[in-house]
Design a protein around this nucleic acid. Structure first.
Length: 671
DNA sequence: ATCTTGCCTG
DNA sequence: CAGGCAAGAT
């Protein structure tokens, strides 16, 4: 391999972690693989090279792992023609070890690589499109397609199963006693918990499929390039695909059985990922940058998955016990028993308590199921397949009515954990997993029925406003439920709009690897205020340029614009106030009015836009302020203020005084 | 007819 | 600072 050289370059690539202020956002898909593989050591080089090494390794012990990995790799890739094939196929194949590996990658090298690659490219791109285009449609689309294509009864069965759980509303009350687990005081909790696990798993699998597609694509490109230089044969490439697939699988296994270890390696993983990126950038430059970006996308999704699972694996840890009258599982259990009967009657009392009590159990269940069948675990749709087999679930028939309770868990954690986590989860919501999250009526019973209004809360009200975050979510544990509701009902529609008319995937992909924000944070507000010192009338393009970590959509854009509108409002109000004051004070000449850093006017402004006073206001702003003050003074002096729109003339003047915002502001981590 | 902008209000 | 509304712009 000629990877040694690029390797070094990659190591030196400082741009590698540009956006990775967050060391935990990185190539999770390779973690487990590299960690477990003795052949792999970070000091040995890039992920690619390791994969290649591993390829040889795998060539022999491919058998089982290979067969199901590769199959799942292709799964879901043929959205159009293979429609329902998706993960179901992979499952099918996975369950029949002797089955032929229907991977798009021919191990025998029978099919022409070019055709195959093209086809795969098309599929991958389609996947991406689907994922970006309509988060929700994806899942539904799968279900619908399954109806038409019922060749495989198992597929149909599985899909039906899933359908059952989809659109229904959470009339948790339904189900009847038979549905409850006898002898279980918190049977409902368990059920909810199981549902959560299942739902989460489904989402994971969905994302896995996407991830595999992306990774495959990435590797494919790499192979293409590599083949040109190394004359590698198809078989080798195919095997390598499998190697990658396995690494992917391993990643998920890792995410499920060893978070600690994985997390410990995040930094290293980041470096490796960046190596790859750097390598790709160097070798193929712009054309293949696209592929790199796709890779980044997949990794971001993967990271999100890891995050979610991590959250699930440590339930309750983030939830303050006080909020719930039940501070311990035991108490919880008894409480649940007491409420057994009233459960149906939408108890507003303590939805949180119920959740809190459920979480620990869901973890147990989850882990146990994972342990019992790692293969299933990683397989795309194993979850659905396994459903009937799993005892807990089989007895959870009633929960079908409120299938998506699952998502309460991640969301709750989301809002009860630091911003860092919530950001990642927001990512998750917005992109890949959204197809699943979006349609999930993950409202707790009480919220569902008694607080329909909460659904109308704008997304940013929950996600962006620190006020809400602190006052509701921070202090009231129950707010987490509110967050769930809001996210569920508000975020999704937003996504649809954004995906439809905004940034192209090419633009979105790179951002996904960044710490892109779903909403505007207090930091953004602060930044905007400081920017106001330079520009009073920023164009939307400027805003987009200087808020690279913000995912712009109509809502966000208008919010930002509104901010500046408010800034101006305050600014002009101050100007008018001081101008009038000057007149009252008997100042006869404009020249006598100056704006310095000692001026009251400046203090007022500075207090507003630079409250912390940790920013050196540019002199230019003082000049503009002075000019504005003069304008007001003159206008008022000339009695122009009798005209209802007398200020417009002033605005016209001032808007021309905008200056460029310093480049430093372009950094997403400026503040 | 729809979107944007600005004013007013809480 | 954001929501609502109305006037203006397209």
């Amino acid at each position: 391999m000629n990877l040694s050289l690029p390797d070094q370059n990659m190591h030196n690539s400082s741009e590698g972690c540009i956006e990775d202020d967050k060391p935990d956002v990185m190539l999770p898909c390779f973690r487990r693989n590299m960690y477990d593989d003795p052949l792999a050591s970070y000091s040995n080089g890039s992920i690619i090279s390791q994969l290649l090494r591993k390829t040889i390794h795998n060539k022999r012990a491919l058998d089982e792992s290979h067969f199901y990995l590769s199959s799942s790799t292709v799964a879901d890739s043929g959205q159009e023609d293979r429609s329902s094939v998706s993960s179901k196929d992979s499952t099918l194949e996975a369950t029949s070890p002797s089955g032929h590996i229907s991977t798009g990658i021919s191990l025998d090298g029978e099919h022409p690589m070019t055709d195959h690659l093209q086809a795969k490219r098309a599929r991958v791109e389609n996947i991406i499109r689907v994922m970006a285009g309509s988060p929700n449609s994806r899942q539904h689309g799968d279900s619908e397609r399954s109806d038409t294509e019922a060749r495989d009864t198992r597929e149909a069965y599985r899909e039906n199963k899933r359908k059952q759980r989809l659109p229904q509303h959470q009339e948790h009350s339904v189900g009847g006693p038979a549905s409850r687990r006898p002898g279980s005081s918190n049977g409902d909790n368990c059920n909810t918990k199981d549902e959560e696990c299942h739902k989460l798993k489904e989402q994971l699998h969905s994302m896995q499929r996407l991830l595999r597609q992306l990774q495959e694509k990435f590797l494919q490109v790499y192979n293409q390039d590599d083949a040109e230089h190394d004359d590698r044969d198809e078989a080798e490439i195919a095997v390598e695909h499998d190697a990658l697939a396995e690494s992917t699988e391993s990643c998920y296994v890792s995410a499920e059985d060893d978070f600690e270890r994985k997390n410990g390696r995040m930094t290293a993983g980041c470096q490796d990922r960046m190596k790859v990126v750097g390598y790709l950038a160097q070798q193929r430059e712009s054309p293949n940058l696209q592929e790199t970006l796709k890779q980044e996308l997949s990794q971001a999704v993967s990271e999100c998955v890891d995050r979610v699972f991590k959250k699930v694996s440590s339930p309750g840890l983030d939830l303050p016990p006080q909020p719930c009258m039940c501070s311990s599982p035991e108490i919880q259990t008894s409480a649940g028993a007491d409420r057994k009967g009233q459960q149906a009657s939408s108890t507003q009392d303590q939805p949180q308590c119920e959740e809190a009590a459920v979480k620990p159990r869901s973890l147990e269940y989850y882990e146990s199921s994972a342990a019992q069948s790692p293969q299933d675990q990683t397989e795309a749709l194993s979850l659905v397949v396994r459903k009937p087999a799993v005892t807990p679930l089989s007895s959870v028939t009633p929960t079908v009515k409120r299938p998506y309770a699952v998502h309460q868990t991640p969301f709750q954690f989301n809002y009860s954990t630091p911003l860092h986590d919530s950001q990642i989860l927001e990512h998750l919501l917005k992109y890949g997993p959204h197809s699943n999250f979006g349609g999930l009526p993950c409202m707790p019973p009480s919220m569902d029925r008694t607080s329909p209004d909460s659904v109308d809360l704008p997304w940013d009200t929950i996600a962006m406003r620190s006020k809400v975050t602190s006052s509701h979510l921070g202090h009231h544990p129950r707010a987490s439920a509110l967050g769930s509701v809001t996210v569920d009902n508000m975020c999704l529609p937003h996504v649809k709009l954004e995906c439809g008319d905004l940034q192209s995937m090419a633009e979105r992909n790179p951002y996904m690897s960044l710490n892109i924000q779903e909403g505007l944070t207090p930091s953004h507000l602060k930044k905007a205020k400081l920017m106001f010192f330079y520009t009073r009338y920023p164009s939307s393009n400027v805003l987009k340029t200087f808020f690279p970590d913000v995912k712009f959509n109509r809502c966000i854009t208008s919010q930002l614009i509104k901010w500046f509108s408010n800034f101006r409002e305050f600014y002009y109000i101050q100007m008018e106030k001081f101008a009038r004051q000057a007149i009252v004070d008997g100042i006869s000449e404009v020249k006598d009015m100056t704006v310095s850093r000692d001026s009251e006017l400046f203090r007022a402004l500075n207090m507003h836009y630079n409250k912390a006073n940790d920013f050196h206001v540019p002199d230019r702003f003082l000049e503009v302020a002075e000019i504005t003050l003069h304008e007001f003074y003159n206008a008022i002096s000339a009695a122009k203020d009798s005209d209802p729109s007398w200020k417009k003339a002033i605005y016209k003047v001032i808007c021309k005084l905008d200056s460029d915002v310093p480049e430093e502001f372009k950094s997403s981590s400026y503040l």
